[in-house]
Amino acid sequence: MAQTVFGATMVDLQYLLRTTTTLISLSQTASGVGFLVGSLSGFLYKYINRQLTIVVMVSMMAIFGGLYPWCPSIWWLYGASAVGGVGAGAWDSASSIWMVEMWAHNSGPLLQILQCMYGLGSIVGPLIVGQYVLGDMACEGTDGDTTTTQALGDTTTALILITTTDINYSVDRGSRLKPPFAIIAVLGVIAPIALLILFIVKRYRAPQPANTTSDIGSVHSDDPVVVVELRGSKSDRIILIIIMSLTFITYSGFELMHFTYSSTYYQYKHILSAKTATTVLSLMAATFTAGRLVAAVVAINEAGVQY
């Protein structure tokens, strides 16, 4: 939810902060930089318990992601995006590694289910904010919300006097956006609170390294781990790594940008209302989630995994 709610509200945040589409989009660049830093934060595990690290990081993602409507300027939004991105990057990298560590070669289906949870959040987030967004009210796709009508005035004369520029600043968008962002932030801190309770009640202890003929630490399985060796020359391995990296970069870029900017695109290109655009975004996220769920079922059937 924290990752997709920005795209659904980008137009409203633009007018709230009185900035341009180009400048508001740069907040995602700041978030990407923070995400990169967060994904490299694994070295902190040497000094801080990993559970406490994740508690802090996920709290950062939830809290700073919920502060967007309270930002007084675009620079504050950049800062909140960057800090929230650090938390998201730390969680995204740690959660996958943690699952592989606990479940070893049985982790495939669980990793797919983890992505299903991301998909569910992508569905729910836009649906929550969809009831509060107005979008560009000068576009033909505006819903003509009753609150907007009351704020503009009930007379035709009042509407005529409001220019295309003024109409988008005639409503207090901040008061409309704060409730859904607060809801998502509160829901987001449930996970770190649960992790903190687990840390106090039953602290997780990382398994000790072992040789390739014994279990390397799956807490649920005694089966040996299959070791995959990359063969070929050093240059071949480097080329393979480069190709895989470019593939992941391309896919991640398409996925992130479409989830982030599609709602805005629908409003301006297809003249949809902001509420309808968020609904379309949720429907797209639903297909994403369904695909992940199918992948999880296939992984379970192929591996014969039993939980």
Rank of each mutant, 00 (worst) to 15 (best):
A158H: 09
F254K: 07
Q51T: 12
K275N: 14
T247V: 11
E255K: 03
L77K: 09
F181S: 01
P69V: 00
A151L: 10
N211H: 05
V298H: 04
K202L: 09
V55S: 00
A30T: 05
M99L: 15
S27D: 01
T165P: 00
V100T: 14
V305D: 04
I193T: 08
W76N: 05
I123L: 01
I123H: 00
L246Q: 06
P109Q: 00
Y15C: 06
A138K: 04
I249W: 05
S282Q: 06
V227P: 05
L283D: 12
L23S: 13
L195G: 00
G135R: 00
T163E: 04
G89F: 07
F6T: 10
T278I: 07
Y118M: 07
A158T: 06
S73P: 08
G130H: 06
S263I: 09
S95E: 12
P192I: 00
V201D: 03
M10T: 02
Q14G: 02
M57W: 01
S282N: 02
Q115Y: 04
P209S: 14
L26C: 07
R231N: 10
T146R: 13
G85Q: 06
Y68G: 10
Q267T: 04
T156Y: 11
V294K: 04
V37L: 14
A90L: 09
N301K: 11
A191R: 02
I54P: 01
D236H: 11
I238K: 12
T164L: 11
N106V: 08
S96Y: 13
H220K: 10
Y266S: 11
T276E: 14
V86K: 07
